[in-house]
Simulated assay, not measured.
Amino acid sequence: MRGDVPVMDADTMSIDLRSTMDIQITALEWMPFEDGYLKYYPDEDRDVYLKQCPDGALEVSPERYRGRVMAEFDYPLSEVYGGDNEILLRSKEFYKNCWVLKLQDPYISLIITILTQNKTADSARRTFYRLQHRYKGIDVHKMASADKHELEELIRTSGPYKADFIIRCSQEIIDRYNGSIEWMRSVPSREAREALLGLYGVGPKTADCVLLFSLGHSVVPVDTHICRVSERTGLSMATGDTEAAKRKVKEDLEQRRRIPGMAHLLIINLGRDFCKAVLPLHHCCPVEGICPKRGTGIRKEKKLTEE
């Protein structure tokens, strides 16, 4: 969590909508549509469209939803890290117009994260949008009683086998926790994580995403991309992306460097935009000059194309 920081009004701040929508689970309720993003609000059975205009302003349609939409923008990435690591300090300055969206319902976060397992974010977004429309808003009881074959068809592009995950873990939440995982906000992170890992179809990254983006626990979700960037930048001395390496990276980031959970979004952005798996863009990376580039010795740097 951020701690005591000034409340910022997203309506008066510069926002990079693409970066904001591309890096966090809380943004996956917004589906790419035309030049912007579409979100279904089940309480009013309404789609709302959001796009960024050429002058940087955000346009919301219908306009009467503007206040509701802008309230979802919580704070910029410039606030997620207050330490002295130069890699992260440069990154947060570079991504200062990327915003963290507010915490969402933890059950919604759980379902979206399951849909992202081994799939792209865009695939999960489109699948979630279909689910929301079909069920007029999903909740634990609707999913626990969903017809498995119908659900398999609805989520086919994100993996039909996940229908079993969704139905069974929803039933477990009802049976074990009276239909809610909200109680996990007020218990230690370790206890909440163990409870989530005990649900069918929930692995370490899924559990950590739910803890961070919906339950307010400052944990660092670790995947292949976090491993790669952490190794190259020296944030972790782990190598590779085995399960053992992921545990080491998580330990290094959370305990040795004491990086707040939301600060891992800076690492994700670096990986997506510059520290790519095959052709890292050293020439234009915001941490060029201070990055040790561990493990990139045999890689070829992608060169600028002259226009």
Results as ranks from 00 to 15, higher is better:
residue 306 E to R: 04
residue 149 H to W: 09
residue 223 D to T: 06
residue 293 K to V: 06
residue 155 I to F: 08
residue 156 R to G: 05
residue 112 I to R: 07
residue 195 A to D: 09
residue 56 G to F: 12
residue 269 N to E: 06
residue 76 P to I: 04
residue 283 H to I: 06
residue 248 K to E: 00
residue 244 A to Y: 03
residue 219 V to N: 12
residue 130 R to C: 05
residue 305 T to A: 13
residue 192 A to V: 14
residue 286 P to D: 01
residue 172 E to G: 00
residue 4 D to K: 14
residue 272 R to P: 02
residue 46 R to E: 13
residue 284 C to K: 14
residue 48 V to E: 05
residue 270 L to K: 00
residue 249 V to L: 01
residue 283 H to K: 12
residue 241 D to T: 08
residue 253 L to Y: 02
residue 272 R to T: 07
residue 58 L to V: 07
residue 239 T to Y: 03
residue 63 E to Y: 00
residue 71 A to R: 12
residue 30 W to N: 04
residue 247 R to D: 09
residue 22 D to C: 07
residue 226 I to L: 13
residue 159 G to N: 05
residue 266 L to P: 03
residue 88 L to E: 02
residue 192 A to S: 10
residue 207 A to T: 09
residue 72 E to S: 15
residue 119 K to T: 06
residue 23 I to S: 01
residue 68 R to H: 02
residue 99 W to N: 01
residue 110 L to P: 04
residue 240 G to R: 12
residue 11 D to G: 01
residue 145 S to D: 04
residue 117 Q to S: 08
residue 66 R to S: 12
residue 144 A to E: 14
residue 183 W to A: 14
residue 88 L to Q: 00
residue 9 D to I: 06
residue 52 Q to A: 11
residue 263 A to L: 06
residue 95 Y to Q: 01
residue 281 L to G: 09
residue 9 D to R: 02
residue 170 S to E: 09
residue 264 H to V: 10
residue 61 S to H: 02
residue 240 G to S: 14
residue 145 S to Q: 10
residue 303 K to A: 09
residue 229 V to Q: 03
residue 55 D to L: 11
residue 227 C to S: 11
residue 58 L to W: 10
residue 107 Y to M: 13
residue 167 I to N: 03
residue 19 S to P: 09
residue 276 K to V: 14
residue 96 K to S: 11
residue 20 T to E: 13
residue 60 V to N: 08
residue 217 H to E: 00
residue 125 R to F: 15
residue 280 P to C: 13
residue 9 D to V: 11
residue 127 T to D: 05
residue 238 A to N: 12
residue 84 D to S: 12
residue 130 R to W: 04
residue 259 I to S: 00
residue 246 K to F: 05
residue 190 R to P: 04
residue 28 L to F: 07
residue 279 L to K: 13
residue 221 P to C: 07
residue 42 P to Q: 15
residue 280 P to L: 07
residue 152 E to M: 15
residue 268 I to C: 08
residue 20 T to C: 13
residue 14 S to L: 13
residue 170 S to Y: 02
residue 59 E to H: 11
residue 119 K to G: 00
residue 133 H to D: 02
residue 307 E to Q: 14
residue 108 I to A: 10
residue 28 L to V: 13
residue 59 E to R: 13
residue 245 A to I: 03
residue 148 K to V: 11
residue 162 K to E: 08
residue 95 Y to A: 03
residue 7 V to F: 03
residue 287 V to W: 05
residue 41 Y to R: 01
residue 65 Y to R: 00
residue 33 F to M: 05
residue 135 Y to I: 03
residue 72 E to D: 12
residue 277 A to R: 14
residue 30 W to S: 07
residue 113 T to A: 15
residue 226 I to T: 14
residue 17 L to C: 09
residue 74 D to I: 04
residue 214 S to F: 09
residue 28 L to E: 03
residue 190 R to W: 02
residue 32 P to E: 03
residue 122 D to L: 00
residue 89 L to D: 04
residue 98 C to Q: 11
residue 47 D to I: 01
residue 303 K to P: 01
residue 22 D to W: 09
residue 101 L to F: 01
residue 283 H to V: 13
residue 20 T to D: 15
residue 305 T to H: 10
residue 32 P to F: 07
residue 142 K to C: 02
residue 227 C to G: 14
residue 277 A to V: 08
residue 28 L to R: 06
residue 120 T to Q: 07
residue 237 M to R: 10
residue 218 S to F: 07
